[in-house]
């Protein structure tokens, strides 16, 4: 990757290349999702101390996905990565009900960010494989997602661990972006 490649990924994107920002609380499953997107082994994943980037091909698009650590301490640094974002993916641990408020607050702060204005947001209600997981519809209601009117949004149930639902989320992205990039 190197610093120069980082700059290349940072600049305003050529067509058919998307800059995707992957955010969410710590333990939401962002890196698992990233590795699942890239069809890599998801059984030994270390908590992210900085960020990970992967380029994934999907539906004729090259997705440059930036996965940023979610610890409270490093959330203030999320904004480092806002510039030129084409799509925001926000990952929620659907089984961590204790932190629904916290994750909702972080999401609404993100949606209020000037630099992310109008950026389509895909919310992954992750960890649907767990017994305590809330359904995507419950989460959508709890987070008042229907009040989002300034951008395309979608909530997609998934399990990054076994890969279910992930592809459906990507499909939504390519449909919504094609419109924008035309």
């Amino acid at each position: 990757m190197g610093l120069l490649s980082l700059l290349k990924k940072l600049r305003s994107n050529p067509e058919q290349e998307l800059r995707i920002l992957l955010l969410g609380l710590d333990n939401a499953g962002k890196t698992t999702l990233l590795k699942s997107l890239a069809s890599e082994d998801v059984s030994h994943i270390t908590p992210t101390q900085g960020f990970n980037i992967k380029s994934v091909q999907s539906e004729g698009f090259k997705l440059n996905v930036w996965d940023i650590g979610g610890q409270r301490k490093i959330r203030p640094y999320w904004r480092n990565y806002f510039e030129n974002t084409d799509v925001l993916i926000y990952v929620i641990d659907s089984a961590d009900r204790k932190r629904f408020d916290e994750t909702g607050e972080e999401l609404s702060e993100l949606l209020a960010e000037e630099k992310l204005m109008g950026v389509p947001v895909l919310i992954f209600a992750n960890k649907q494989d767990l017994m305590n997981s809330a359904r995507a519809s419950e989460i959508a209601e709890g987070l008042n997602l229907h009040t989002i009117r300034d951008r395309p949004w979608n909530i997609q149930a998934c399990s990054a661990l076994n890969g279910e639902g992930v592809k459906d989320g990507l499909n939504w992205i390519s449909k919504n972006i094609q419109r924008k990039k035309k």
Binding site: D26, N27, S43, H44, I45, T46, P47, Q49, Q71, R72
Partner: peptide, 22 residues
């Protein structure tokens, strides 16, 4: 596989962890 703590005090952990504990 992963061990994480937040906002904890005085926890003694006997641990076997597959990745770096945080």
């Amino acid at each position: 596989q992963q061990f994480r703590t937040r906002d904890c005090k005085r926890i003694t952990t006997f641990l076997s962890c597959g990745t770096q504990p945080i």
